[in-house]
Design a protein around this nucleic acid. Sequence first.
RNA 1: GCGCCCGUAGCUCAAUCGGAUAGAGCAACAGCCUUCUAAGCUGUAGGUUACUGGUUCGAUUCCAGUCGGGCGUACCA
Length: 548
Amino acid sequence: MKEYLEKILTEALQKLNYAVKNIQFDKPKEEKFGDLSTNAAMLLAKELKTSPRKIAEEIINKLEYDNKLISKVDIAGAGFINFFISDNFYKDNLTTILGEKDDFGKSDLNKNKTADLEWVSANPTGPLHLGHGRGLCLGKAVANLLEWTGYKVTREYYYNDAGNQMNNLGKSVQARYMQLIDPDFPFPEDGYVGDYVKDIAKIIYDERKDSLKDSDDIDFFKKAGENYNFKLIRKTLDTLGIHHDTYFNESSLYENKIIDNILDEFKKRSLSYENDGAIWLKMDPDEGFQKDKVIVKSSGEPTYRLPDIAYHVDKLNRGYDLIVDIFGSDHGDTYKEVLYGVQMLGYDSDKIKVIIHQMVTFKMGDESVKMSKRSDNVVYLDDLVNDISPDATQFFFVMRGRNTHLDFDVALAKEQSEKNPMYYLQYAHARICGILRNADDNIPDHKNLDLKKIDPELIKSEDEIKLLKTLSRFPEEVESSAEGFEPHKIITYLNEVAENFHRFYHNNRVVDLENKELSKARLLICLATKQVFKNGFDIIGISAPERM
RNA sequence: GCGCCCGUAGCUCAAUCGGAUAGAGCAACAGCCUUCUAAGCUGUAGGUUACUGGUUCGAUUCCAGUCGGGCGUACCA
């Protein structure tokens, strides 16, 4: 529809010899201002130094349009041109929705393009906890959104099996193992204190008894811990319906000499230097960096920045059209350093989009618990999911814009009542399923309805038309959500659909044996609404229940 | 101190690259079930968009400053 309006408006402007860049069509907030409106006249007013209303009148006089599609065009306010789209357009849209089914809302905007989404990427030093939740659920929905606009998406997990933290895990496991033999064995000061470390030690002890008590093979304990933890992580991801296509091992960056090559490259370009036995990367103050950063410690180990830069170089070399990373705001500065490093090596970092989300506060009972990934009092994600269900976890983490500090009300997410915003949406879907079950019994031939045989004049109430209008917007809602990586917009939109559906339901009896033709027409509306819910739920990553 | 993010109804949040009278849900109040699920619907009330200035025909949106909160500011990731 927008394309059509753009076309006829451009034609009218050409006749007047006016040139406008970025013509916008917006959905006005109020119905009396039509279905779509443009501010083209206001944009012209500045250049032409005449009143916007006068220009709007000129444009309308030159405007040629199809009366079957557009019922009225008028001017309002400061010079908005408002278009009223005919009801028939929306009725025809039913055919589109019911024809495209699970594909309704998909676009080929990014057809034949590839995208790589890397997220979660938790180190296997322990199970996933609440601090991981938001990014994890956000990524699931974003991946779906990208697919809905045509991208072929690779879901990737950066597996960090090297470095300090893993050594620390090895030492922790060893200490817990030794404590099974000698309770006085000291635990490392900054070791991992979670109970899962004891579980790992117990498994090792059950298998090997005390045969390892004199061993200093930290790698053995490390590996045991890593395997155990990664199994836990994948299990949690599995219950949340998150599946990665590839796991990229950090250690491969060393094995393939990519790290060495990049180090050489930095040196060659005089971007790095040695000081105090460490290698530093020069950071440009004009880019907002306050000081240079260490990329190789004096111990010879790289800091996280170097492999991260190498990893992104590798991703760029793989040729994706879009590369997306998801991090919490606690990484807000460090990704900039990484991108800077990538740029300095001569790569175009524009393809890399970094999604940063703000931290989450969990409301549990009367207390609020802040949960960054480094928080001391750890609550495991599994416990939350078991407590409130995978759907509620997904929904509540994705419900709000990622730049807001999310307040996660655990009691509310758990509650199975009208207070819970997720149920408002799912209930609408279940309600439609109930109507369809009723129709199965009473109007058995409803399943093979032909829209062409339905008299469009039967659909005429305000509730019905409004619902159809809302449904027709779904594809553009998907596009705009995908553009900004903002799945919460889908929820906001579905809320509007639910609102309109519930009102329609309340005022219009669907299955009416006295009036089967009308029933059939309304059943089509129900089917289309159900489809939009289902597709929206698919994107945000929750189920579409048939009964509640 | 410096950098990034945020501040909208009592609470949690929306608001389409600057647009028309700032919208939902919950909570509050008043109604609606002999009819397909009342996890629903209808109505009322609730606001100086933190504050102060600026740019503009028009600012919640952009700019500057102030106040308040979050996250960073490591030879941790």
